[in-house]
Design a protein around this nucleic acid. Structure first.
Lengths: 228, 228
DNA sequence: CCAGTACCTTGACTTAAGTCAAAAAAGCGT
DNA sequence: ACGCTTTTTTGACTTAAGTCAAGGTACTGG
């Protein structure tokens, strides 16, 4: 399966590793094929390894006592997830579920730790990946505590625009309900804000595509946080 | 200065390192003595290394456009900070300022990266520390998005109770204004909620000490998130 | 001990965003 | 195209928490 080696070498975590090191990584990885909606792990489960998305999409989420779900992250091809408890402890701190039929690579804990302690460059890559995650979390906390929902949505749209390299239109790729959860709000509120942004000529919605009519205005809103 | 070696060997980051490795670490560290209220770095500053608190207290915070400040973390002796951009990029993602007269150890970026790539166990320690940080952030995001302020406060009190190993009373160590910022709210709201918790016989306040009258009730509130 | 400053509390008011309920629109398999 | 489910939107209402403003309390240094 040379496709898998390709996936591994494309993942940021394994960037710049030698052919031999990549082969070592391949050796310890286990393929998992999952249907849409499959639970990969639940909060509190023992962690005996972590995953990389080879294909498909996975959501990482928490559930409140009342059953309200908050999505922390949505990961696609090349992204690792569940790597935190590999180094921090034994339990997963959140739930993971596939959003699409997915192909995952599983890396058993002990084998990976062995590998990392023999490969300083792999260790440094891993440190880089974790640090990027921390930076993203910092942004997310900033958004949640400093900004109102319109500001958070604007931030997200600006982020998508950079991610997708387009200034005219972005694709959501997830349902608006899921987006609401990712932004720490509920579908009703998100829907109202999208309508308001429409009225303010900031965007135009067309299904899961959002036409950016005033990217400057959105950036402004993302920084200053007030709509209207 | 053998006191500094003591501080280094006590820091979780350097746990379990050999005498020789600790000496290497000491070699590259630079002492910085700061008065209370000294800014260590600002968001966007170039990162040429990270710090460990040897003595004193440091707050990591973000400032919104309107000047509202949100504290992300407060670190004391043994805690490292600013380590994220060492591996992720070049800029600090938040501001750092001393809350007390403090003694810091500075670790220059390149020297530390060299050191880490020669010490697999140091790399693993570092991975552990970053992973713990990520776990804390996950909790913080969960709190901010899933719970109302009373629930967040209850979470924090329960956390303090575990941290300080007491079930009867906890010490805040920071001002109530700073606590408000740490919880993502404002002093007025925090004050009102403390009063309400008093009326509900959950706590009793006495300056910066909080008497836990009903720890079970607080845990309940932290999980379920509703007061009254 | 007193003045001055920083911190904390209280009150009246406003507002963003959540809840509940129902209708409309979009997807999907047959 | 049809009926079914899921997603999205809209409306009326409630509420948590923010703003502004004014007192009160406590700690500091002279």
């Amino acid at each position: 399966m040379k496709k898998i080696l390709q996936i591994i070498s494309d993942a940021p975590l394994f960037n710049g590793l030698s052919e031999e090191q990549l082969n070592d990584v391949r050796q310890i990885s286990v393929d998992k094929f999952c249907d849409k909606g499959k639970t990969i792990f639940l909060e509190g489960d023992d962690c005996n390894g972590f995953y990389i998305v080879a294909d498909g999409k996975v959501k990482i989420y928490k559930v409140s006592f009342e059953g309200k779900e908050h999505i922390l992250h949505i990961y696609g091809p090349g992204n690792p997830f569940g790597e935190v408890p590999v180094f921090a402890g034994r339990k997963f701190p959140a739930n993971a579920q596939t959003l699409l039929k997915s192909h995952l690579l599983f890396f058993p804990r002990t084998a990976f730790v062995d590998l990392i302690s023999k490969n300083p460059s792999l260790a440094l890559n891993m440190l880089g990946v974790l640090s990027m995650r921390l930076r993203q979390f910092t942004v997310q906390i900033e958004n949640l505590s400093l900004k109102e929902v319109p500001g958070r949505l604007a931030s997200y749209l600006v982020y998508l625009s950079q991610e997708q390299g387009r200034t005219d239109v972005v694709a959501l790729n997830i349902s608006k309900g899921q987006l609401a959860s990712l932004l720490g709000t509920i579908p009703e509120t998100l829907s109202r804000i999208l309508t308001k942004m429409n009225q303010h000529h900031l965007i135009d919605t067309s299904g899961r595509d959002i036409i950016l009519k005033d990217l400057g205005g959105l950036k402004d809103l993302a920084e200053h946080g007030k709509l209207q």
